[in-house]
Every structure is written in structure tokens, then in C-alpha cells.
């Protein structure tokens, strides 16, 4: 995925914190929480559209991460690992609340590797509102791909759908977003 910030010293201290948290150091885990909470909450909020549910999902994500920390491989990205957990938690919450309306299709739409560039600059709030108005399946893949930079296959894996479905949903999301925003999305 697209790196948020350069690897380097961050990885070093993060690895050390993970190791300490692994042996039960709650303060070290709190440091990790402080570092990653915003991105996890941001993802949960975009997936659930409900701040209260997103808070629950964020807490659940970190609690699950704490329990599974011994299985985390420090070679991989902690941010990605946390996002995987967050996606699972958010999807499980949806299922539990019977909110899922399976709208995904298995159409093998042409893959769309765009930059998600807008024809005209728009306010963040306006774009976020348009994204929030997308159907769940399309919104999930758009958030993971366009905002968090995960590839089609990564997003598909996280969401438990076929890569073709993921591409089709992205295609659909782009079209719907274009309509909602009234500008071309490339």
C-alpha cells in the first residue's frame, strides 16, 4: 500500500513498542494506540458512518490487537495489520446489526487504477458527505483504495470479496461519486 510516512526510525521504535506490549507492557501499547488511533478511527468512521459505532469499532480493534499481538509479525506494517482488524470488526458489527445489504456483484469490470483526482477542487466536507452517501460495498472499497491507498487485491482480501468484485465496486463508486459531486473523478 501507499506508505503514509517514510519507514525508518518510526519502524524501529514501533517494533520496540510492539515487543514491549507483547510481554504485557500496557503503557507501550498505549503509545501504539496514540499513534494509530486516528487512522483506525478514520477508517471505522468512514465504513460505519456513525461516530458512536466507529468509537466502538476502534476500541474493539485495539482490544483485539492487544489479544493477538503475540501473533503479529514485526516485519509487516502495524498500521496495515490494525486496519485489517478494524475492517473485520466493522464488517462484523454490520452483520450483527443486520445492516449489510449485499450489493456487490461479481462483474469483472475493467480495473480502474486512477488517482481519484477531481476536475475541480472541492471542500473536504463535501467530498466526505458524498462518500458517506455511497452504498456500503462501493464505499468500503473506495475508502480502502482511494483514501488509505490499499491495492485492489489488498482491499479485496480485507473485505473478503473477490478482486473482480472489488474492481467492479470501485468502478461503481467512481460513477456514483461523479454524480453526487457533479464533477469528473479521474
Amino acid at each position: 500500500m501507499t506508505q503514509i510516512e517514510p519507514e525508518g526510525t518510526r519502524v524501529d521504535w514501533e517494533g520496540a513498542l510492539v515487543q514491549r506490549a507483547c510481554v504485557g507492557d500496557v503503557r507501550a501499547f498505549e503509545r501504539l494506540y496514540r499513534e494509530h488511533a486516528g487512522r483506525v478511527y478514520g477508517l471505522c468512521l468512514r465504513m460505519t458512518r456513525d461516530p458512536a459505532v466507529a468509537e466502538d469499532c476502534t476500541q474493539e480493534t485495539f482490544i483485539n490487537a492487544w489479544k493477538a499481538l503475540a501473533r503479529f509479525e514485526t516485519r509487516s506494517s502495524l498500521a496495515t495489520w490494525l486496519h485489517r482488524i478494524a475492517v473485520n470488526v466493522a464488517l462484523a458489527k454490520r452483520r450483527k446489526a443486520s445492516l449489510i445489504v449485499e450489493s456487490s456483484t461479481e462483474d469483472e469490470e475493467e480495473g480502474i487504477e486512477g488517482e481519484w483526482t477531481l476536475e475541480t477542487p472541492l471542500e473536504v466536507n463535501e467530498i466526505e458527505a458524498a462518500i458517506a452517501g455511497l452504498p456500503e460495498g462501493a464505499r468500503d472499497v473506495l475508502v480502502l483504495n482511494a483514501i488509505y491507498g490499499y491495492s485492489h487485491s489488498e482491499a479485496a482480501q480485507m473485505l473478503g470479496v473477490a478482486e473482480g468484485t472489488c474492481k467492479a465496486q470501485l468502478h461503481r463508486a467512481r460513477g456514483l461519486l461523479r454524480k453526487k459531486l457533479g464533477v469528473e473523478v479521474r
Binding site: G38, Y41, W116, V124, I127, L142, I147
Partner: peptide, 12 residues
Amino acid sequence: KVTSLRDLPQAV
């Protein structure tokens, strides 16, 4: 104002 979805804040 942003010109790309990639410019939306990842962290909230």
C-alpha cells in the same frame, strides 16, 4: 479544498 481523494485526511 482538495483536488484528489488521496488528499483527504486518513486520520480522524
